[in-house]
Design a binder for these strands. Structure first.
Length: 212
DNA sequence: TGCCAGGCCCTCTTTAGGGCCTT
């Protein structure tokens, strides 16, 4: 079944390190699917990278080598995830990081990237909350008073928190600029807008797409 | 041998450097 036109998937990878180019692999994927502003589906799975992960990553994520030993391989999981994201636009916090791993893992299983455009909640937060003390995911959750239990650095939890932050940012944009909807293409433009020019970007969008 | 990410963004910038953010 094809996703709705406004279907959006917020995802988060836990990995063995920072760079797939240096041999790092994904060890967990978590994602939530949002349609019409509501969470309609989730995806979470650990993945065995085929080698032991460092004590730093075990401490950082809470994911241990024994947990990964009984898990399915990256390739098996990524085949299923490619199907999960098919046709949906994507969001991640610091998307350049997750995009690199997504494309790398899909390339390893010779599966084409089936998602749509990839937006970054970090770039959006920097635009609309320039005065936030930090733009780390956890700090933004606190800054916007979004309820959260302690569970950061696990994939589904971080994806769920990013989804809540994303919906909050959309709501704040709607209120600030008196918009009924905030299309994904407009968000992409806001993310790329120079500092302090969001108002002009949105005004132009309204002129062209709302007022005709 | 030793080192090793990469994109964004700011400023003491643009012929550069360093902090932020992700694991």
């Amino acid at each position: 079944m094809l996703p709705q036109a406004d279907s959006l998937i917020i995802l988060d990878f836990e990995t063995t390190g920072l760079s797939p180019n240096l041999g790092d692999r994904a060890i967990e994927i978590g994602a939530v699917k949002i349609e019409s502003g509501q969470v309609v589906d989730t995806f979470q799975e650990l993945m065995d990278p085929g080698f032991l992960i460092s004590s730093f990553i075990q401490g950082y994520t809470g994911i241990t080598n024994s947990m990964l030993k009984g898990s399915r391989s990256c390739s098996t999981v990524m085949y299923e995830f490619a199907d999960f994201i098919r046709g949906s636009n994507l969001v991640a916090h610091n998307a350049s990081f997750d995009k690199r791993f997504l494309e790398h893992e899909l390339e390893l299983v010779s599966s084409p990237h089936t998602g749509g455009e990839f937006a970054c909640s970090l770039l959006l937060a920097r635009r609309i909350y320039p005065n936030a003390p930090s733009h780390k995911l956890g700090e933004l959750i606190t800054y916007k008073n979004i309820p959260a239990k302690d569970g950061f650095h696990r994939a589904l939890f971080d994806a769920e928190m990013t989804a809540k932050l994303w919906l909050k940012m959309i709501e704040d944009i709607k209120i600030e600029y008196q918009l009924a909807e905030v299309p994904f293409k407009l968000i992409m433009r806001i993310c790329k807008a120079p500092k302090g020019s969001i108002g002009k970007v949105i005004e132009k969008w309204i002129r062209v797409h709302v007022n005709g």
